[in-house]
Computed example of a mutant assay.
Amino acid sequence: MQALSVFKSLHRTRMAVFRDDDRALTAARFKINEEFRKNKNETSEENIQKMIKMGTDVEAVLRQAVLQVEHVGEEKLLLRPRESLMLENVPYCDEPRKKS
């Protein structure tokens, strides 16, 4: 049951991270499906838990660290940030904030 949850989570994250990039969507789908298919007959609970942890870690890296960038000119790139990556922008200040 956990493995199915990780499988679905990876595919949902793939769809968000690589939105509008058919090549990356296809490659990620192929890799996710290949890894799960390759290990579908695993019976060792220890190995299964290790693979579930690996899948969860990969999903987190995709969600938190992968940016989508598109070439829009010979020397120009367009960054497509996902809303989930947008953090509060706090201006830099040399002086520490005063405690209230």
Rank of each mutant, 00 (worst) to 15 (best):
Q2F: 08
A3H: 07
A3W: 09
L4Y: 12
S5K: 02
S5L: 07
S5P: 06
S5F: 06
V6G: 09
F7H: 13
K8A: 07
S9N: 10
L10S: 06
L10Y: 07
L10Q: 01
H11I: 08
M15P: 04
A16Q: 07
V17K: 02
V17I: 00
F18D: 13
R19D: 10
R19H: 09
D20A: 00
D21H: 03
D22N: 09
A24G: 05
A24P: 13
L25R: 15
T26E: 15
A28Y: 04
R29H: 14
R29A: 09
F30K: 06
K31F: 14
K31E: 14
N33M: 03
N33K: 01
E34N: 04
R37C: 11
R37Q: 14
K38G: 05
K38F: 09
K40D: 12
T43S: 13
T43P: 11
T43Y: 08
E46W: 05
E46R: 11
N47L: 04
K50P: 07
K53P: 04
M54N: 12
M54P: 03
G55T: 03
G55L: 06
G55Q: 06
G55P: 10
T56F: 00
E59Y: 00
V61P: 00
L62Q: 03
Q64C: 04
L67C: 13
E70T: 02
E70P: 02
H71T: 12
E74I: 03
E75K: 09
K76Y: 06
K76V: 11
L77A: 10
L79F: 13
L79Q: 08
P81W: 09
P81H: 08
P81Q: 02
P81V: 12
R82E: 07
S84N: 07
L85D: 11
M86C: 12
M86F: 13
M86R: 05
E88G: 10
N89R: 13
V90I: 14
V90D: 00
P91I: 06
P91Y: 04
C93A: 15
D94N: 07
D94C: 03
E95C: 10
P96M: 00
R97F: 08
R97E: 05
K98M: 12
K99C: 01
K99N: 05
S100F: 13
